[in-house]
Design a protein around this nucleic acid. Sequence first.
RNA 1: GUGGCUGUAGCUCAGUUGGUUAGAGCGCCGGAUUGUGGUUCCGGAGGUCGUGGGUUCAAGACCCAUCAGCCACCCCA
Length: 445
Amino acid sequence: MAKINPVSGFPEWLPEEKLIEQFFLDTVRKKFELYGFTPIEPRSIEPLDVLLSKGDDKEIYTLRRLHEEDPSAPAEFGLHFDMTVPFARYVQQYRGHLNFPFKRYQIQKAWRGERPQEGRYREFYQADIDVINEGDLPISYDAEFPQLIHDIISSLPTPPVCIRVNNRKILTGFYQALSISDAAGVLRVVDKLDKIGASAVIGSLKDELGLSQEQAELCLKLGQIKSSDLSFVKEVQALGYSHPTLQEGLDELAFVVAASQSLPQGTLLADLSLARGLDYYTGTVYECNFVGHESLGSICGGGRYDNLASDDKVKLPGIGISFGITRMLGYLFARKMLKANKSSPVTVLVALPSEEARLEAITIANRLRSRGISTDVNHAAQKFGKQIRNAERSGVPYVWFFTQGDASSYELKDIRTGEQTKVSVETWEPKPEDTKLQVSLNLEP
RNA sequence: GUGGCUGUAGCUCAGUUGGUUAGAGCGCCGGAUUGUGGUUCCGGAGGUCGUGGGUUCAAGACCCAUCAGCCACCCCA
């Protein structure tokens, strides 16, 4: 092998980190199933025209064969950059085999060619849930997602989440009432309010989009409205403009906010500057941050799309959100904020007293394994001190000692307490906390 | 994709205006401790200074390119 180097944007975890990642993925998966979502795993590649169908400004990794007949021909396939667009294709393709409303989850890697930095990678896990229906999808589905997001984040060893929510109809309806034609442009600018500030938003709206001073100020005022309860409705109405789409959006957002009032204070915030990507969202949009770690950016986001999977005859509206698992982990790992109780799946290390005793050690290990206890045999007949140290370094909680040919000699040392007791290979059981990976959040550093 | 900062042992970092054999702490390995870890003490290994090229009598220090990490833009998980 030639030079070994990392590849920019393609993170690789160490074993302890991978165990933690697996813990995150498992936790999320169980919650998804708890809420009634069913797994699918569409292929990682899509025809380029599918990937580009909702916008052509994507940074896509394309795919080609080394021995292609015509190496200069344009690539036909690309790696998917999210789960939603391929899901829409999947639903259309298998519609006859699916039951609606179809609630599915996908936990897969996605690839984007963007320039990497912390929290932004070229290869990363997304944990994605969507519900899609034929005909109409009631607003009550929109209202379920904040509860679900809060439940999932609460079950992970991360900082608490703040879920910001908005409805695109409020923004587009309001802009129509103001006779603004370039709604998408305004969305893009107002979405940056938190980052660039009020005066820069006004400036961009006027200089780049040609809005009048009055239009720009009204767009800004709308975007500055935030509330954790229903008071945003009156604030919007106080601006003095009405439009059917605007009213529809207000009603929907009010429903979502009202349904989420049982969440802890500060978890849900109606934020009328929130717009998100321009490609397919048509109604409710969500975006989530870790409280106190806003610089990381959004760790979960999504929304409602009414037209993504629809064709001329049948409407297939859907709502989906995606959790940025790799983004969270990269950030938490870099700050050493995650602590695990073990760094190896092994529960028991059988100490090897001599090379001649190896077969017996393997027999002991296999007995334990047959009862579901993850067991390893030390690789060499080292001094016991070293064997204990090996266990300690791998995060293995127990070391099993025996004298060759003497089944009554079995003793088990808990290396966390130093305690050593006589045990039987047929009856000893580890405590649940010994076998189960536990990850905790360390906010101190 | 655009712009900026950074890159010296496994890790965190020193390294004078370019000058001979590149250092420290932690970690790692061995021993004290003759088969039961974590403390202490003693000893040891480990670096073509990210990589490639250039300037110079001389480059870890300067220049160029490239790769990687981070930051801002862009976009979003």
